[in-house]
Structure formats: C-alpha cells, structure tokens
Write a protein that binds this DNA or RNA. Structure first.
Length: 649
RNA sequence: GCCGGAGUAGCUCAGGGGUAGAGCGCAUCCUUGGUAAGGAUGAGGUCACGAGUUCAAUUCUCGUCUUCGGCUCCA
C-alpha cells in the first residue's frame, strides 16, 4: 500500500507503485490532461516515473514554475532533435530553461553557421516531430557506458559534463531518434508541445568562460496552445512599444551622439525637467530625513582611489588617468563618490554625538563599461548616482537602515512601483577569508539588516555569498517592459572604507572608534531610474513628473496675448505651460501620440464669448468643458496634491 | 571585450554596379468657423566613415566607428 500526500494534506492510497499521471487521473481527467510533471518529496519527476513508496506529491501544471520548466526542458530536447536532423554531427552543450522559454548551446559541424532564416525550418521540423507523439523515455546508465556513448558521438562537450558527474546518477532521455544526457524531468511525450517560436540566436561561451570555445545559442519558447503563443507575441510587441529608448527619442527626453561618445547620454530639455523633478522630490524627502547635501569635484587624484582600493580593483576598467602639466601628477574621472565623502568626514574630528552624519550628493561618475554592455539609459559610461553615505556608530546601523528603507518605500509608492523584489546579500559562511571586518561586526550588520527588513514588513530573498567583500547589502530590483530585472535601489553596509581612510570618532569612553559607513542610492542612478520609470509608465508619467504638464493652445493668432496671460497665470502655480503662437493649424501638431502624453490641453479662444475661460481636455478623459482659468488652476493643483498626498508618511 | 544582425531624408523604412525612393514630419500657398483636417507646391541625402575591386560603388570586398540581440561584467 502506498500513501500519497497531496499539498492540501489529503492522503490517497494506491495498491502498488503509481506514476504522477496515475495520481492525476485518480483526481480528474482534466487534471490528467493538464499535469506536466510531478514533485515527489520536493524533487521534480517525470509523470511516468514510478513512485514506489509513501511520498508527498505535488502535481505541476503550466501554472507552476516546475510545470513550465519541464515543458520547456522537453522543448529544448525537441529543438535539439530537429537540429540534429538538419545538421548531423552537431555537438550539444547544455539546454536549460530560462525565465521565458529555453535555449540550447550547440556546436555545428564543419564550421557551419545558423542564421535567423534557418530558425523557421527548425521550428517546422520541431512541430512535425512533436506531432509524431514520440514517448520521452528515461533510462539510467553507468558512467562508463555514458562516456563510451558520447566518445562514439565525438561530443567532447557532453564528455566534459559526464566526467564531472558521479557514477550511478547519470540518466539519459530518448525521444524518436534523439538521445541526450539529461537529469530530467521531461514530459511523457512530445505531443504536449503545440506552439513553437524560436526567438533568437546568439553566441555564448562554453560554460560562460571567454577562454572557451564560442558556441551558438538558440533561444526558443513553446506553449501547450497556439493561442498562448499568439498572446505572448502580442505581449512582446507591446513591450517593445514601451522601450525607453523608443519613448525617450519620441518624447525628446534624451539622446546619444556619436560625436560626444559612446554611452554618454545627453539630457534634452524635457528629460532634464523630468530628472530634476525626481531629484527635487528626493532632496525634499532626504532633507526631512536629516541628510545634508554636499558637492564634490568630478575628478580626483589617482592616489585617492589607491587609498580606497578602487584603483587596484577597477583601474583597468576605468577611463584612464589624466596627466597634468605637472610631472608625475595623475587625476581620474571619479568612478564613485565615496572617497570624496570620506574626505569630507575627515574635515574635523568627530564626536559620537555627531553621528549619524548623512551626506548626500547627486554625483556624476564615469565608468568605462565594456562597449557591448551599453544599453540605452540603463547602462552608460557617465551617470549620476543619487548617492549618500551615512556614517554612524555600530549601534545605529539598524535604525539607519530602516530609515533608508522608508525612503525607498516613499519613492516606490510615489511612482507606484509594485513589481519589485528585495534581496539581502550575506556572507558565504564557508569562506570567511573573503571578507574584511571583524566577524562580530558582520554578525551585527547582518542581523541589523535582517531585523530592519522584518520590522518594515519587507518581503526579501536571502542570498549567501552575494555580499560585497566589505559588507552585506540589500538590493531592490524591478522588472522592465520585457521582463528583464534591473537593480535599482541599493543599501550597503561598509567596514572597508572607514578602515582604509582611517575614519574615527571619539566615543563616550573618550577612545577612538571606527564609524560604520552605509552607502545608499534609492534610485540607483538617475539614468537607469528614468529608463525604468519610462517603461513602467509607458511614458505617461504621474502628473507631478510630466515633462509637459499643460499645453495652452491659442486657436488663432489673435488669442496669443490671452494665451500668454493664461500661461503666465498658471506659471505662478508652478505648472509648466507651453504657448505655441502659431495659427489654428496647431491642432495638427498636438494630436495622436503627443496628445496622449500631455495630461492637459487648454484651448484658448474656442468660444469668443468667453475669453476669460479655457476649454480643458484631460488625457484619456476627453473634454472637461469650459472653465475659468483660475478654476482650472485649482483643479490641476488639487489633482497634483492628490497624487502627492501621503507620500511623506 | 567576444559572437551574430543592422547603419539610406528629422522619424519609420523600401531599394539596388550606371541622375536616390515612399509614408509621416517640416516649409509656402489654397481650402476649411472647425473637436484638429483636405488639396497643391517645395526644401531636406557625400546612402555611417576609410581603403580596395571596377570604365563606373550608396550597392561587391576588407577595415574602422556606431547601434541592436546575446555572452561576459556591473565598485
């Protein structure tokens, strides 16, 4: 008798060994059709693999991550089978699943190359093979046999993988004419796969090491229903429309120029206005939280970065030192603001009563990112961090950390960022030698972060070994239009720099102590943040951020004076207005896309009887009717106030 | 940096060894008392840059730069 415990704690009894599929059938036919794999005591198994002892079982469908992974994993094998059909002798590296879909790294024989056009025929072949309904069969194999088999195939990639596996744990999966080394699990057969799209081809190093051979990586995604693929493709198209590079160009927020240089963004007037609104907002919040603004130069003596240790670690990846007329003198474009702030700290001796000191700067830094890494505003070579450094006593770390989390919450709430994740990065407990600072301080800092997050009710994931060598950290990630994760806000505890710069304060005991430094940047960088904000809002910014709040349109030239009066009047209310003094054809300009992005359109002179009034149109709502200009000002201010209300508490 | 696409008007793109093309935008004029439009005319290009092949290169070849998709990296 076998007892199977389901997630709802109910227990089903079976006469003898059962498969996941059997269990699903015993529940409902519908589930038997939908189930893709089965988790047995936490391990994901094939549906057809026999369970011969009591176990806790979860049936995975498309809605479960495990189900999707099984589906895509089998799809990768299907793709490999199709590729082997057209390119016999292809060597196969690894073929894992990713967030959406799967890829396979392959090495085509005789230096053949794959182009985008070839993907279609592979797709077709995959569908053909899928319809053959070939069973996917698992078998166990000894290490020796496995080595023999792939030696015969002359596939040194698989041989390398096998050589690292333990004998007795090696399994093969076969479908049709294709057999692959694989841990599994897989679908029972290929007919589950109904809709296939191979999305792209890219180069990738074998095992991610640039000293290794470059393989061809083929990406694809599959679905159990054609309709789901269609929806996915529509979603991708929609996402492309939100791309910040596209919107940034259309709205004239920022630009790049070959003449200026790669990865160096030019902020256009509207983009600058947007950015300044964000900066002002954060400055107000920071002021409330006891930060003081500072300013430091864009360059610094190379020695400064040698003291901080950054030169040794990152000197090669920086813009190279600038020589001066003086012999042997070298300066660097600053790659970070921290060393400058440490020097500010040292201006005069500090008492424990002075701490915490919170030093903020919108500091522009320059890093020579690899050319292939540059990407719109999200990865650039010159960018402005909304940087601040908090110098505090060890006993203040937790409280300061919580205050930083508060600030990040205020920002995310103000901009309705809900789809974020937070990750705590701690030491690797097995490798204490990797980290600087005393274990006691690390313990204190790590528990301070964990407790601070808990007390703030922040849901986090914890990664061991992901901490910086100088301290633990907390990162906030947010997804962009295409589902890629970007790191935005970051809070890092640092024991290293205070040490290197010999920072001190005099404690209540009249002894010298070392302060703890907290680095934090809620936006991360203005560039990246604006990029994510654009994609998040698809260019429809909250009213208080909109680069063009209100457009005043005189319907003909004779209303120009009045339009100017209206705009002057509204300017008093801190609302940007744009007067276009062209004639009535202006209507053509303000339409479609542009109209969509301007919250308010005021038309002056529509009704000659009411020259004291304006016709108001609200984005997405259409005609709001005729209002007195002063009424409109109140109306808009009220709306902005509503959007801003509650942001500070 | 590496692999693979791409670079033609302000924007989106078509073309192709022999005066350079479209749509939108822009300009001028006409029409339209209008919910933001119709018509006519026109201006805009070293076809990214540099070499090579050729009688002739924007087109073919090579190199450089930039950009896009990945890899790697991210203080």
């Amino acid at each position: 008798m076998i007892h199977i415990t389901l997630p709802d704690k109910s227990v089903r009894e079976f006469e003898g060994a059962v498969t996941g599929l059997d269990i699903a059938k015993s529940i409902s036919n519908r589930l038997a059709k939908d189930v893709l794999s089965v988790s047995v005591d936490g391990q994901v198994w094939d549906l057809t693999r026999e369970i011969d002892k009591d176990a806790a079982v979860k049936l995975n469908t498309w809605d479960d991550r495990e189900g999707k992974e099984t589906f895509w994993h089998s799809s990768a094998h299907l793709m490999a089978e199709a590729i082997e059909f057209y390119y016999p002798g292809t060597k196969f590296g690894i073929g894992p699943t990713v967030d959406t879909g799967f890829y396979y790294d392959i090495d085509l024989p005789n230096g053949q190359v794959l182009s985008e056009k070839d993907l279609e025929k592979i797709e077709k072949k995959m569908l053909e093979l899928a319809r053959e309904k070939n069973d996917i069969v698992r078998s166990e194999i000894s290490k020796k046999d496995a080595l023999d088999m792939f030696t015969q195939k002359n596939d040194e990639l698989k041989l390398e993988l096998i050589s690292e596996l333990e004998d007795g744990t090696i399994t093969l999966y076969n479908q049709g004419k294709f057999t692959d080394l694989c841990r599994g699990p897989h679908l029972p057969n290929t007919e589950y796969i109904k809709a296939i799209k191979l999305t792209s081809i890219a180069g990738a190093y074998w095992r991610g090491d640039e000293h290794n051979k470059m393989l061809t990586r083929v990406y694809g995604v599959t679905f159990p229903k054609q309709k789901m693929l269609d929806e996915y493709l529509v979603m991708i198209e929609e996402a492309k429309k939100r791309d910040h590079r596209k919107i940034g160009k259309e709205m004239e927020l920022f630009a790049f120029s070959d003449a200026v240089g790669q990865g160096l963004p030019l902020w256009l007037p509207k983009g600058t206005q947007l950015r300044m609104q964000l900066e002002d907002f954060l400055k107000r919040v920071q002021k409330k939280y006891g930060y003081e603004q500072v300013m430091t130069p864009h360059i610094g003596d190379v020695k400064l970065y040698k003291t901080s240790g950054h030169f040794q670690k990152y000197g090669k990846d920086s813009f190279q030192p600038i020589s001066t007329p003086a012999e042997g003198e070298e300066y660097m474009l600053k790659p970070m603001n921290c060393p400058h702030h440490c020097e500010i700290y040292k201006v005069r001796p500090k008492s424990y009563k002075d701490l915490p000191i919170r030093m903020a700067e919108f500091g522009t830094v320059y890093r020579y990112e690899m050319s292939g890494e540059l990407h719109g505003l999200t990865r650039v070579r010159g960018f402005t961090q909304d940087d601040a450094h908090i110098f505090c006593r060890p006993d203040q770390v937790k409280e300061e950390f919580q205050k930083v989390i508060d600030i990040i919450f205020i920002i995310f709430k103000a901009l309705s960022f809900e789809n974020y994740t937070a990750q705590i990065s701690l030491r690797d407990p097995e490798k204490p030698e990797k980290y600087i600072g005393s274990p006691e301080n690390w313990d204190k800092a790590e528990s301070a972060i964990i407790e601070a997050c808990e007390e703030k009710g922040l849901e986090t994931t914890t990664e061991l070994g992901e901490a910086a060598f100088y301290g633990p950290k907390l990162d906030f990630m947010i997804k962009d239009a295409l589902g890629r994760s970007w790191q935005l806000g970051t809070v890092q505890v640092d024991y290293n720099l205070p040490e290197r710069f010999q920072l001190e304060y005099i404690g209540a005991d009249d002894n010298r102590h070392r302060p703890v430094m907290i680095h934090r940047a809620p936006f991360g960088s203005m560039e990246r943040f604006v990029a994510v904000l654009i994609e998040h809002t698809a260019g429809k910014f909250p009213l208080w951020l909109t680069p063009e709040q209100v457009v005043v349109l005189p319907i003909s030239e004779k209303y120009n004076d009045y339009a100017k009066k209206v705009s002057d009047f509204l300017n008093i209310s801190d609302i940007r207005t744009v007067v276009d003094d062209r004639n009535e054809k202006i209507g053509r300009k303000i339409r479609d896309n542009e109209l969509k992005r301007i919250p308010y359109l005021l038309i002056v002179g529509e009704n000659e009887a009411q020259t004291e009034s304006v016709s108001v149109r609200r984005q997405g709502e259409g005609d709001k009717g005729v209002m007195k200009t002063s009424e409109f000002a109140d109306f808009v201010l009220k709306e902005i106030r509503e959007q801003l209300s509650g942001l500070y508490n």
